[in-house]
Every structure is written in C-alpha cells, then in structure tokens.
Design a protein around this nucleic acid. Structure first.
Lengths: 239, 239
DNA sequence: AGGTGATTAAAACTATTGTTTGAATATGAA
DNA sequence: TTCATATTCAAACAATAGTTTTAATCACCT
C-alpha cells in the first residue's frame, strides 16, 4: 500500500522533470504559489492558502510536488528561467560600444524588475531569498548571480582598463548593481519616501538613463585619469 | 482573577515604556530576540527558541511584552534607536563642505552596517522589514527613512543646484543610497560572487571612499554642466 | 518573620500547518 | 464495458507555535 503510494509519488516527481506542461492543476498551483511565496516568503506562505487560491485540494501540493519545499523549489527554478536573465545576457552579448552595452544592461534589468508598477513576483521571490536563504539558494547564486556578475565585471573592467578581478572593477560593478537594486528591494521604502514615484514605462526609462549617466560619469573619468591611453582593449564581450 | 492578571500585564507594559533598564530577563530577552528575529525573520522566529536562548521560560515573552508582536515591536524600536541614525545625522549636520558631508554620511552608514564582518542585526532586521513589512513598518519609515532621506535630498540638491524635491535630486539620492544598500542587502549574494571580500574596517573605508568618488564624479559634473554658476546656495543643512 | 506583589516555572490549551490516508472519481486503454 | 491508473477529495494526524493558566518562588517592605 505504502510502496504503491510512494511509487505514484515518484512517478509524478519524475514526470515533473520531464514534461513541464499539460496538467492544469499543476500549472495553476505553480502560478499561484509564485505570487503567494513572493508576497509572504517561504515560511509564512501556507499550503492551504495556495491551494484555495488555485482552486485545488490541500493534498494537491503534496501529490504533485512531494512537499512544500518541492513546490517552492520548482517555483524558484521557473522564476530563474523567467527572470529575464536572457534579456540581460543578450544585452551583454550585443555588439556595441561598452557604454551602450552598459546602458542596455541597466535598462533590461530595470525593465524586467518593474513590470506593472511594483516588482513582479519573480524578483520579489529573489529578494526573499537574499534575506532568508532557503536550501535552494546556492543554486540561485550559481545560476543567475555569478554568470551575470562575471560578464558585468568583464564589461566594466574593459571600460576602465583594469582586469575583471581587480578590486576597483568589482567596486564599480557593485556601484552599478546597487543603484538598480535600490529600486527592487526598497519598494516600500521608496513608496514611503517618494510617493509621487510611479513606475510607468517612461519613468523606468528615465531612471535607467539616469543610472547610466551617473555610472558612466565616473567610469569615463576613471579611464581618462588612469590607464588613460588604452583604447578599446579588453573588450572580452563577444570575442 | 482575569482582571487581576491583566492588571499585572498592564503594569508591566506601562513600566516598559518608562524604565528601560533594571530587569535582567527582560533585557536578555530583548537582546537575544534581536539576533533571532534578524536571523529568521518575524514569522520564522519562535518564542521558544528566543526563550531558551535567553535562559527564560516560554511564558516570559507574554509576561513581559504581552505577545510576540509586542516583543518584536520593542526590538524594532530599540533597533531604530541604535541603528546609529545619530551617526548619520550628525554627519549630515556637521559644518563642512557638501562633498565632505556626503563622504561622511556614506562612511557613517557603511560603518554602522558592517560591524563585525556581516551586517549587524539591527540592519538585518530592517532588511526583513523591507521585504516582509510587519504592522510595525510605517513607523519605521517615518522615524528613520523619511528624515534622513529628506536631509540627503537637501544636501545633494544643494550640490547640484536643484531643489530637494526635484526628480533629478531624488534620482541622485537613490543612486547614492543604492550603492550603500548593495552591501547591506546582498550580503549572501556578494559572498557568493566576491568571496574574497572581507568586511574589515579598512575594507569598509575603501568601499566608502569608492562610493564617494563614484558619486561625486557625477554630481560635480552635473553641477558644472547645468546650473553651472550657482555658488554654494541652497545649503539648507545647518541653517 | 510575615505578607504582598512581582516574577518565574511547568504544564496544558488552542490554533495552525504540513502531511498522510483511504475512499471516491475521472481518465484512458483493451 | 471493464479494468487499471492517475487524480481529486474530505478527513484525520502529528507536530509546532503562540498563548494561558495555575502554582511556586522570589524580592522587598513593615
């Protein structure tokens, strides 16, 4: 009896890895769970709330995903896939001047962050992970954090004429990232402090432009002061 | 019977507001709770864990603080008081050039953030609040967020020759803040992406200097390009 | 010492939550 | 249809967490 049950579970779990689609309640569950996890965080989100919101039975989560963490892990993976890492990466990969690439990266990241007016749930989940890492966290770092940061380091290193692993390069990369993250993580804080700010697409563009100007000012100044000469070397991007 | 009990509770609660010290278990509770709330967040932190860590009985929290939220609220208030808002404010208030003031603010904020190697628990609690606001959140905004941001706007507005409520001023203020916050909120992310980074006092100073350089580059460029003339007007600080 | 009120302690209570169970129902093939 | 399998459902289980209760203990004052 029990072995039968666990076999069913295993089957369901295996199918999970293979065929992503075709089960309506499964999909509904994933979709709803994403928003609720994003709102409340892993611990505070309850299976029951997720299930009623999905119009499913309480046992549905355990049946389809094994347990709560299984559901969360899958939501997170889906989130990583959808977090528009591609948008940023393709921005990084395009063939253009480093300045334009940097601006494109900032714009891509900012756009994907504030979709409807507040950060979409994909990113809210990530911010939960930053504050309260779950067991699913390391994979998150390695899958989205590291590769993008690495390319950003190469890009900025090239712009200021320093190797990607130079401390100054890293400080600059964090300075750029930080300006973007301010709009992600401090949503409620920003709302409290700058109520008139509405995240319309036009506003997002203005913000992106500002961050670009703000950052390039220092990067270009640095380049002309130090390494000075070096023309466009160290363009590792697309090469 | 019950009225007697609730009277006791009220008394304890009232004493709470008045005399901050002199009750060892109360203090121990507050101290331990701060760290545990900072680690796990409000929901995931349990009264039992807090109590055993404080060497107190499970009922101690309800006796001294009414309920869990009461304890949390008090921890948060103490955190706000101790968050070295004063350090930042006194940095903002000092009589110096705007550039030096800005650098001092950055340094003060960054120093108070990474005390021992990772952000101290006062700030980790605040980051939890940003991601999962509790009922205690609005007060937090009004008590630390707004006033400091307001002064920062005045300072930066003065530096670039724009009024504090100009959008450009706000964008710049957020750019400065964001660079600092990157080191607060993305602790684990940073560790995953720049493992060699150790938050020694010297490192913190280097980071602060960098953020100062990075920010001033744009602010000064902006000033000389636009408003250009305006000497030191709009120095609302200390006036 | 005795008594009064504040504090602590152990245990129980209640609500919630993740999970499991076993029956009921739907689905799809032979 | 009939059987087998997958899925859903209502109910219950077990564990946990916040809170309450009641008695014991402590501290201080007369």
């Amino acid at each position: 009896m029990n072995s039968n049950r666990s076999q069913v579970k295993l089957k369901a779990a295996r199918r999970t890895r293979r065929q992503p689609a075709s089960d309506p309640t499964r999909e509904k569950l994933l979709d709803v769970a994403g928003q609720i996890f994003a709102d409340r965080g892993y611990k505070a989100a309850t299976i029951r709330e997720i299930c009623v919101a999905a119009g499913a039975n309480v046992a549905a989560v355990n049946y389809h995903f094994g347990d709560k963490l299984g559901l969360y892990t899958e939501v997170l993976q889906q989130s990583l896939r959808a977090a528009e890492v591609e948008a940023v990466q393709s921005a990084l990969d395009q063939n253009a001047s480093p300045e334009d690439i940097l601006r494109a990266v900032i714009r891509a990241r900012l756009r994907s962050i504030c979709r409807g007016g507040l950060p979409d749930w994909h990113f809210r989940i990530l911010s939960h992970e930053l504050v309260q890492p779950t067991p699913a966290f390391p994979q998150l770092i390695n899958k989205v954090g590291r590769p993008i940061f690495k390319r950003l380091l190469e890009l900025i290193g090239g712009m200021i004429g320093l190797p990607p692993n130079d401390d100054k390069t890293r400080l600059c990369a964090i300075s750029v990232m930080g300006q973007i993250l301010a709009y992600v993580f401090t949503g409620p804080l920003l709302a409290g402090v700058w109520p008139e700010l509405t995240m319309t697409p036009e506003q997002v563009e203005r913000i992106a432009d500002h961050i670009g100007d703000f950052s390039l000012s220092y990067l270009q100044e640095f380049r002309s002061k130090h390494g000075a000469v070096a023309p466009v070397r160290k363009r590792r991007v697309n090469e």
